[in-house]
Amino acid sequence: MSDGYKTLHPVKYYREFLSQGIRPDGREFNTFRPILLNVGSINTADGSAIAKVGNTTVVCGIKAELCKPKPDAPDCGFVVPNLELPPLCSAKFRPGPPSDQAQVLTQLIAEIITNSNCIDLRDLCIVRDKLAWCLFVDFVCLDFDGAVVDAAVVSLLGALKTVKLPLVEYDPALESTQVFLEEKKPIKLHSMPVSTTFAVFEDKIILKDPTLEEETLCSGVFTIVLKDDELCCVHKPGGSPLAPEELVKCIDESKLRTPLISSLIATTLKS
């Protein structure tokens, strides 16, 4: 009975639940979904992780390649993120070139990486103007159930923590490179960005960590990314207008997630 009601009047169904202060999946407005993290899951990648936020699943794999730095930044390497939304993850996506949403999410993750400064591009340079590492950070979403950026950022951190780059020697006279695969070193992570997504239901109720169903019914979604005590991204791409005080309140709420995620990553790496 309730299934039929939900299909026919999804908004009304949600409104009735939310007016009682609870969400249809049993969570309160400001409860996160449980997060799972598994690191080093892909053998062929230089670093990898799988993150699950509720049902949302994102796999992150990092592949390192040697390349030549750009002339305008001779002492910097590269980090190239790419998020894929295959047709497997949701009925919304079709095979073919990346959808608009995939491109926007890729750009958002790229901005989070540069803004938070979690990887110093200068650490990736091996020989100035000659040789640097290019990290291809590929994300594949396996289950698209809302707050994909949050899951992607957690998997990014897990993958970066497991990256090990081999020692490279460069001979300037012969312009030849020698790679020592036996001697591998981890890269330094300078900060730990933590992202939290919120959705606004009917201009009033703010739901933390929304599922896909909530995201589609809501009139606006926004993401706040924190780096320790500072902010590195408040991304609200339109949607229903919010008073500035409410945004600030959400910033405070998202601060609660930082200790959870850092302890999650620490325990995952230990085991």
């Binding site: 803004n115 938070s116 500072e230 902010l231 991304h235 008073a243 405070d252």
Partner: peptide, 29 residues
């Protein structure tokens, strides 16, 4: 920031760089 003309609420926000919560509030105002 993008504001609406009636109540001056935030429709869209896009940020670059690192900042504190206080700076964010100041910037919105």
């Amino acid at each position: 920031f993008v504001f609406d003309s009636t109540e001056k609420r935030v429709i869209a926000s896009h940020t670059k760089g690192i900042f504190t919560k206080e700076q964010f509030e100041e910037a919105v105002e």
